[in-house]
Design a protein around this nucleic acid. Structure first.
Lengths: 233, 233
DNA sequence: CAGTGGTCTAGACCACAGG
DNA sequence: CTGTGGTCTAGACCACTGG
């Protein structure tokens, strides 16, 4: 008898995937434990662990101590979106990137903003409004509030050579954040800035980032009509 | 001298994160190699590897053989979206889920569809249109083409007890897929089905899944106005 | 060519939770 | 209480790629 040899964790993973896709292991079913699989595959338990752990991270397997490993009944697809700097997005499309700072103020934010950022309503923040261009055409609008208590250096930056988007990533590290994607009809102002009809459906990203317990920046990016965000499963 | 001990890969990761956030290691800077860090941290190289590899997967570090490990200059945020079954989404919001199959046909798909699915224009596919409800209110519209060559059993399913969305996940495993998020104005038909004004901005998900080289299903989900998709960074 | 990360192994101990 | 996954270790070899 020739025992098949799976020497790398990737090959183990492929074999496991094959069994799932071939329905040898069906959704909800318990699969053998790591030790048994290691013996069957002719590799060490650590290798099997790596393969199964990775599959569990993508949502295809459910693993629990003592209960064992099961094929996920409802494979929750984990789509990983790369939220990069807008300049990179544009350049990846083979277009020339440019940006303009269209508005700037140091002022008290509206209640909604200070509340979301858990900052006192009495302290000033830096407000920035910018237009991102691809091949000279409007690509996205950026509205941003920057917490000057966390990033005081922002006061002295002109944001002309480098966009606020990019400057903050370099100078204001964050520990965590929330992000939300939605759709909204273009307001009059947005339509004018983006060169589209008022009411056009726009793709929107709202992001709020934190460093420890302090809000760093809150930004809303409104993309020109037709924008898509793609990824693979 | 007391050498700090980092005994778990998580604690090593936290220490690395601390150094990045404290700017001891700045964006673009080269950090010590695994062997040196292992010695400094008083743990094995494998532990350091696990910590750094995980950080690299989240985009915070750039690792290359021979070149070493650097703090990412542009930390590309990897946002992981959980694309679950619509029923789960609704129930997670504490609402009652329901669905209606509003249209069903076995017919030849439009060229755009057969081309995207790389299927012959001459063969029939199953077309499904469904309305998903939350607490009785329209939540999302689903337009779906199912490749009967890959999932012939779909012909005999009524999709009343279980939505097509969920049925396919259980019965038609896929190996990979594309997904795209966008915004569009509601058409007359969509407005009527969703109970909103024509032209309202709607959040849209387009998904195409494959099993090996065969397209399984192509689906477009149009959410009622105001829908947001959230995640953390 | 040589340094770095990538991985595998065998063995060990541990934490957790199912029964 | 016991089986399962989770992790750590020390050592080894390999693959890639920068210089």
């Amino acid at each position: 008898m020739t025992k098949p040899q799976f020497r790398s964790w990737q090959s183990v993973q492929e074999e496991v995937l094959r069994r799932i896709h071939a329905r040898e292991w069906t959704p909800g079913a318990l699969i053998p434990n790591e030790a048994d699989l290691a013996e069957e595959f002719g590799c060490s338990r650590a290798t099997v662990n790596r393969a199964l752990r990775t599959l569990a991270e993508t949502g295809l397997l459910d693993r629990r101590r003592k209960a064992g490993t099961r094929v996920a009944a409802q494979p929750v697809a984990k789509a990983t979106l790369d939220i990069s700097v807008i300049r990179m997005d544009v350049e990846a499309r083979g277009q020339r990137y440019d940006h303009q700072l269209t508005d700037r103020a140091t002022t008290r934010p509206p209640m909604a903003v200070s509340a979301a950022m858990q900052a006192p309503t009495t302290s000033d923040m830096l407000f920035l409004k910018a237009l991102h261009l691809a091949d000279g055409q409007p690509y996205a609008l950026e509205d941003r509030w920057v917490n000057l208590e966390v990033v005081p250096e922002a006061s002295e930056e002109r944001f002309d050579a480098i966009s606020s988007n990019e400057w903050l990533l370099r100078h204001a590290p964050y520990t965590h954040g929330d992000i939300a994607f939605s759709a909204a009809n273009a307001t009059e102002g947005e339509a004018q800035a983006l060169g589209c009809a008022p009411g056009a459906a726009l793709f929107i990203i709202d992001r709020l980032t934190w460093n420890r317990s302090k809000a760093v920046t809150k930004v809303r990016i409104v993309f020109a009509p037709g924008h898509q965000m793609r990824t693979v499963l």
